[in-house]
């Protein structure tokens, strides 16, 4: 009950009215067009099977594009849902799922890692990527440049290799599934 000891108890959101999401129907390629209007070139990957827009960013324009998306005037993409590493055999890719609470639009951002498995971290824009990027680093070995605390999270610290890579082999006879 010590109010003075409690930094998170500042009455920032006291007694405000609830904000209600207003779903908007947006045309295909909405966010890609928006980024293009901002002068950021993105590769448009169309929609996936669930109708979410997918874009691919390069390492250079990832941060400005993310910044622009977060401050989109109509549907600010403020909620980062997950970061999925994907092993494409040729290279590895991180897939960011972001959502706008206000317009409840989803967007999928793909950023490919380079040959040294380096990719830009979006921590500066969405701090929520913290644990998610650590997980992708842990399981895929994608090194996020600019992440403040990139350590293993799920596997033990002494673990060797990155288990979710397709070429990962664990030579333990008990793990028969690796041989299938």
């Amino acid at each position: 009950m010590n109010a003075e000891n409690n930094p998170s108890s500042s009455p920032a959101s006291s007694a405000s009215t609830p904000e209600v999401a207003v779903p908007q129907a947006v045309p295909a390629g909405f966010f890609g067009a928006y980024l293009a209007s901002k002068g950021i070139a993105v590769e448009n990957l169309g929609s996936d099977a669930t109708g979410m827009e997918q874009i691919r960013l390069t390492a250079e324009n990832a941060l400005p594009a993310a910044e622009a998306l977060k401050h989109h005037p109509d549907s600010p993409m403020d909620l980062l849902l997950s970061v999925a590493g994907v092993d494409l055999l040729t290279h590895r890719e991180s897939v960011y799922h972001v959502q706008s609470i206000l317009s409840s639009q989803f967007l999928i951002i793909k950023i490919a890692a380079n040959e040294k498995d380096e990719a830009p971290s979006l921590f500066a824009v969405w701090p929520a990527v913290d644990w998610h990027e650590r997980e992708a680093f842990d399981l895929y070995g994608i090194v996020y440049q600019g992440h403040p605390d990139l350590r293993r999270i799920l596997m033990p610290t002494y673990w060797e290799g990155f288990p979710l890579r397709k070429d990962y082999k664990q030579e333990d006879p008990r793990l028969v599934w690796n041989n299938r």
């Binding site: 009950m1 109010a3 409690n6 108890s9 009455p11 006291s14 007694a15």
Partner: peptide, 8 residues
């Protein structure tokens, strides 16, 4: 009451 409400 005021203490409780202040923290809300």
């Amino acid at each position: 009451q005021s203490r409780l409400l202040k923290q809300v």
